[in-house]
């Protein structure tokens, strides 16, 4: 039986002390342990950025691809082996900047993958440029006079793309984040857990204190119904995207792999890929 320990390795992350990503790493490890998964049955696919290094910091199969493309790689992994628990992870630049297109399409394609975004509204690894979630007016290296572009709302985009599971966490609350990640993994289909994961070095605006002050837990709304898409849309708008907790889940949505014609329970990787002579000849005959 696997526990959180099995998902820890001896690699020291190259994140700055105090980085929000440590809490995300811990939450992923706990969630995987709590779900009693074996490390060899988990694949973590990440992109580029500080947070992209996370695939090396969890004891599982890890793939660190190119910038913005964790989701296409993760979907490929799932196609080859539907028995694996596949996580994709990266930052807001990786997922909502260069990789935004893949995110929307992954959401609507709905493969059974859990996507964890460490959102700090800044480009950290390249040392402090503004990101797609940086607020209007935000000052960074590339916005010395303040950001003249508007921040996108990953949550609204996710809902608009037809996502089946949407949650938002905060690095300050590891137990909530662990639960959200667990729920995302359990969800049959594509799930996004967007995590406010402060950059302590380059973002002096969206700090732990700032998030503590501005985020609103959905538990404060006893009537909130996360199965209601319209309510989710409204709540995300009302809270300016700063609500935390389970925002939306559609349990009836069928994941991609259960809808593929002729797809087998046995993963592709375990199937005999030789075709028999009879099938070969018959298929060739169609060209005569």
């Amino acid at each position: 039986m696997a526990t959180v320990k099995e998902f820890r390795n001896n690699i020291r992350p190259n994140w700055c002390p105090g980085c929000g990503d440590f809490a995300v790493q811990a939450s992923i490890q706990r969630a995987l342990g709590n779900l009693d998964l074996e490390p060899e049955n988990v694949a973590i696919i990440s992109g580029i950025g500080c947070s992209g290094r996370i695939s090396g910091y969890v004891n599982a199969y890890g793939f660190h691809g190119v910038h913005g493309r964790s989701l296409p790689v993760a979907q490929g992994v799932k196609l080859a082996n539907r028995n694996l628990t596949v996580l994709a992870a990266g930052g807001d630049g990786d997922g909502f900047g260069i990789g935004l297109g893949h995110f929307m399409h992954a959401a609507r394609r709905n493969m059974d993958i859990t996507y964890i975004v460490m959102d700090n509204s800044i480009y950290g690894l390249t040392k402090g440029q503004h990101s797609p979630t940086s607020a209007f007016g935000f000052k960074a290296k590339t916005t010395p006079a303040g950001n003249i572009e508007n921040a996108i709302s990953p949550l609204q985009i996710a809902l608009a793309a037809g996502i089946g599971f949407l949650a938002q966490g905060f690095s300050h609350d590891v137990s909530q984040l662990t639960e959200l990640i667990q729920a995302g993994i359990r969800h049959k289909g594509f799930s996004l857990i967007n995590v406010f994961s402060p950059c302590v070095t380059y973002n002096k605006v969206n700090t732990y204190e700032w998030y503590k002050e501005h985020t609103i837990s959905l538990e404060q709304f006893p009537d909130y119904d996360p199965t209601n898409r319209k309510m989710a849309m409204e709540k995300v708008a009302d809270t300016d995207g700063l609500c935390t907790g389970l925002i939306f889940e559609d349990k009836n949505k069928q994941p991609f792999d259960s809808l593929v014609e002729g797809f087998k329970e046995t993963p592709v990787v375990h199937q005999d890929i030789h075709i028999d002579r009879d099938f070969f000849e018959k298929t060739m005959e169609e060209f005569a």
Partner: peptide, 18 residues
């Protein structure tokens, strides 16, 4: 959605054994 996804997904599938 595009050819960037196409090849990255191909890489993912091959990495996982297909």
């Amino acid at each position: 959605e595009d050819e960037i996804a196409a090849l990255n997904m191909t890489i993912g599938a091959s990495y996982a054994g297909a």
